[in-house]
């Protein structure tokens, strides 16, 4: 019961945060200088045309009215129309968001699948050669700019060796007709993975390194705890101690870190998409800002914020799932 109640309260807490995101987005976008009118109509619009455009987009209203209008629209899932692309914002986002999510999911999975075993092994074999090597690798991983890794990967694996493509990301459920060289869905899936590998490594390396470091230090700490000593005193084998007694506790700081890493991962996605010319949300938002496409900027920022909030909730819930102290508050 404790867990269910915690879940619900957590979800409810998300609402004010989302509201805050909407508000900040609105205010920030408002602060961007530039007259959308001149963008649309050219440098010297006639007063009449200008007034018409202003009225149409409600740009002549005072701040709070515009804010409320926006709020109402958002709730109705109407995020406006992109000035630059001339299509509804929601449409543009729907087009681009899955790609970025695909990339993010892939890189986090890569990071976790590599970091957790690496960190555990490092902790178990503390101060041996294996440990030192993995620590050095992790150190370099957090110190290297992700976009540079991308460039290097492209030079070596794309240009030099020709193993992987250097651009684009294909979603595995795209129909084969839209992709050259693909006749069946399986082909599409294969191509999709093929395109996914370099960007995943690019985005995921930083995460992997950070996660490895945390996993290692957390494991070391847990292995020194009293309850591990107790388990040993009762004859539990080292393997079981690692696998069961220590493992769960050691994941807690990692889960917290994953939540914190989300925001930097979203930024990293922007960079990765730029390097690999991927048409995802990251590039969309940059283009929107550069073009002062207000509706699009607000829409994309909002969606990004939402993704982040959902991510945080998922991590919080995972944490609560592992650590009963969070959700089960009672004590005698």
């Amino acid at each position: 019961m404790g867990r269910l109640r915690y879940t619900i309260s957590r979800l409810l807490q998300a609402i004010p945060v989302i509201l805050g995101v909407i508000t900040i987005t609105f205010l920030l976008t408002d602060a961007i200088p530039g007259d959308p009118v001149s963008i649309m109509l050219g440098p010297s619009p006639s007063a009449q045309q200008a007034a018409a455009i202003r009225a149409k987009f409600g740009l002549d209203q005072p701040l709070h009215i515009r804010y409320l209008n926006y709020l109402v629209d958002v709730i109705q899932l109407d995020l406006g129309t992109s000035l630059y692309y001339q299509v509804p914002v929601t449409e543009k986002i729907a087009e681009r968001l899955p790609i970025t999510l695909y990339l993010l999911l892939s890189s986090f999975t890569f990071a976790l699948l590599t970091a957790v075993p690496l960190g555990i092994i490092s902790a178990k074999r503390r101060n041996t050669a294996t440990d030192h090597v993995s620590r050095v690798v992790a150190l370099f991983g957090v110190s290297t700019p992700s976009f540079w890794i991308g460039l290097m990967l492209i030079i070596v694996f794309s240009y030099w060796l020709g193993y992987f493509p250097a651009t684009n990301l294909i979603l595995p459920w795209t129909s084969p007709s839209q992709i050259d060289g693909a006749s069946t869905q399986v082909d599409v899936i294969v191509k999709s993975i093929h395109h996914l590998i370099l960007p995943t490594i690019t985005l995921g390396t930083l995460q992997m390194a950070a996660f490895t470091r945390i996993e290692r230090s957390s494991m070391l700490e847990v292995l020194g705890e009293e309850y591990v000593k107790l388990a040993r005193a009762y004859g539990v084998s080292e393997r079981t101690i690692l696998r069961k007694h220590a493992f769960r506790n050691a994941q807690l700081p990692l889960i917290t870190l994953v939540g914190l890493q989300l925001t930097s991962a979203l930024g990293g996605a922007v960079l990765t998409e730029t390097v690999f010319s991927i048409n995802g949300m990251g590039r969309l938002i940059i283009t929107a800002i550069q073009n002062q496409d207000f509706q699009l900027v607000m829409g994309t920022t909002l969606v990004f914020g939402l993704v982040f909030v959902i991510g945080v909730i998922v991590t919080d819930l995972s944490y609560a799932y592992v650590d009963p102290r969070v959700s089960f508050e009672d004590s005698e």
């Binding site: 920030l28 979203l266 930024g267």
Partner: peptide, 18 residues
């Protein structure tokens, strides 16, 4: 926390554009 919710890079880019 809300500040945190908006991707870092985006925030700074918007700031700089402004």
């Amino acid at each position: 926390e809300t500040l945190y919710a908006i991707p870092f890079l985006v925030l700074v880019i918007a700031f700089m554009t402004a």
